[in-house]
């Protein structure tokens, strides 16, 4: 095990540990802050796998915007005294769905990439990602942008329908 692998394992453990804390923390604010640690550790893993572009975009978008959005939503919603995570009946459904998704994604990763090694190639630079995105993957990319546009229009419609009535 070389130095890079040791750092990778440490970051992975950090990501998993803080994710567990984010799920079990009774205070929602703490959960959001543990999520920051998780996302940061995952970004570190991306850097070690030479996917620097994904790593910095992850920090910029998720830590810089999504977590801020989560915290903003927390602050706006009603809370009595200390913010506590509410326990709903959907808890077990969510756990089962999360488990299925984790096992499915994990199995795909292991089946597709088990035993592969990154040998000094720079596969995650902005140039290579851009090239792949606009040659091999241009159709999924366009479909995704269509889906995002539809979601955007839907959000505007939903948020405006209240004021018209």
């Amino acid at each position: 095990m070389n130095g890079t692998e040791v750092v990778f394992v440490v970051l992975s453990l950090l990501a998993v540990g803080s994710a567990v804390l984010a799920m079990t923390s009774p205070q929602l604010v703490h959960a959001a802050l543990w999520l920051v640690v998780t996302l940061g550790a995952v970004a570190g893993c991306f850097v070690l796998m030479t996917a620097e572009f994904v790593a910095w975009v992850q920090v910029l978008v998720y830590v810089g915007s999504v977590v801020v959005l989560v915290i903003f939503a927390l602050m706006l919603t009603r809370q009595s005294g200390r913010t506590t995570a509410e326990v709903t009946g959907n808890r077990w459904t969510a756990a089962v769905l999360g488990l299925v998704a984790a096992v499915g994604l994990g199995a795909t990763m292991v089946a597709g990439f088990a035993g592969e090694r990154i040998e000094g190639r720079r596969i995650g630079t902005a140039a290579s990602i851009g090239e792949a995105l606009f040659t091999d993957w241009v159709l999924p990319f366009e479909i995704l942008s269509g889906v995002l546009l539809a979601a955007l229009v839907g959000a505007i419609v939903l948020s405006r329908s209240g004021s018209d009535r």
């Binding site: 910095w56 975009v57 920090v59 910029l60 830590v63 810089g64 602050m75 630079t125 902005a126």
Partner: peptide, 26 residues
Amino acid sequence: DLDLGLFFVLAAMSVGVLGTLMGGLG
């Protein structure tokens, strides 16, 4: 000198502002 210096600096700046937010919450 980073290949993605621009994104690196913007990402770091976006983390910095979390501090003020934590101050407000905590």
